[in-house]
């Protein structure tokens, strides 16, 4: 079951809102379970078992491990554990959005919403570039492992500066080169055409999109009332 791009975006915003409003772990695990379910329903490769496992570990650390550990450990760890756990609903939604949406679908929806190329092109390129950036990073890391870059430099600050330079420079060089090549390919395929682009991959929102949004809204309202209900 794949939903519309806009549904995923709304879902992400609402789950972030819920995460900041809600303080009840039972509600949160409920939200997380439904999001994981949504991932499972989306088809192969969207549900990431390791991500789910990490979430479980974080919840268990916070509610089982930290209370029995000495106060000092709680002081050091609690902020980290809570912040990361709190970010999980958003993270899972971003995974949903990223894995389920093709760049063309995203551009199509945005274009149909009347957003101009000035926004859709950079966003599309950015999303398309995420795997490439990761790949570039891995290549550079491999190259660095094969060569002891900092050998002979004793000053620790210089060592850091040297490492920093050697990671960043090839990354910038290759990204800027790729951006030039991408631009040449894009321009020679008429990306600057002022006509309104047509969208082969546009699908209007369907029943399941509206149902998902309504359910998510209901949960958000519930979280809001639970937090501020008494004051109103």
């Amino acid at each position: 079951m794949k939903l519309d791009v806009r549904t995923y975006i709304i879902l992400t915003v609402l789950s972030a809102t819920c995460a900041s409003l809600n303080t009840d772990i039972r509600v949160e695990t409920g939200i997380m379970l439904s999001l994981f379910l949504l991932q499972l329903l989306s088809g192969r490769g969207v549900f990431m078992p390791k991500l789910a496992l990490t979430y479980v570990i974080f919840v268990l650390t916070e509610y089982v491990l930290l209370p029995v550990l000495p106060e000092a450990a709680d002081m050091i760890l609690s902020m980290f554990v809570v912040n990361v756990r709190n970010f999980f609903p958003v993270l899972v939604c971003i995974v949903l959005l990223y894995k389920n949406t093709r760049v063309s679908e995203m551009s199509a929806s945005l274009t149909q919403m009347g957003i101009s190329r000035k926004v859709t092109v950079p966003v599309a390129v950015a999303i398309r570039y995420i795997p490439t950036l990761k790949e570039e990073w891995e290549h550079i890391r491999d190259a660095m492992r094969m060569r002891s870059i900092t050998a002979g430099i004793t000053n620790p600050f210089k060592r850091i500066a040297c490492k920093f330079e050697c990671y960043l420079v090839p990354l910038f060089v290759s990204s800027l080169k790729s951006s030039d090549e991408l631009a040449a390919a894009a321009v020679s395929r008429g990306i600057e055409n002022p006509a309104k682009p047509s969208c082969r991959n546009y699908r209007p929102m369907g029943m399941r999109d509206y149902v998902t949004i309504v359910l998510a809204l209901a949960v958000t309202v519930m979280c809001f009332l639970q937090r501020y209900g008494r004051q109103i």
Partner: peptide, 19 residues
Amino acid sequence: KMQGKDYITCGILSLMNMV
């Protein structure tokens, strides 16, 4: 004026900004 290729360059740098 910003042209097609500039939007592409800025898009990639924008991604790096977020990273």
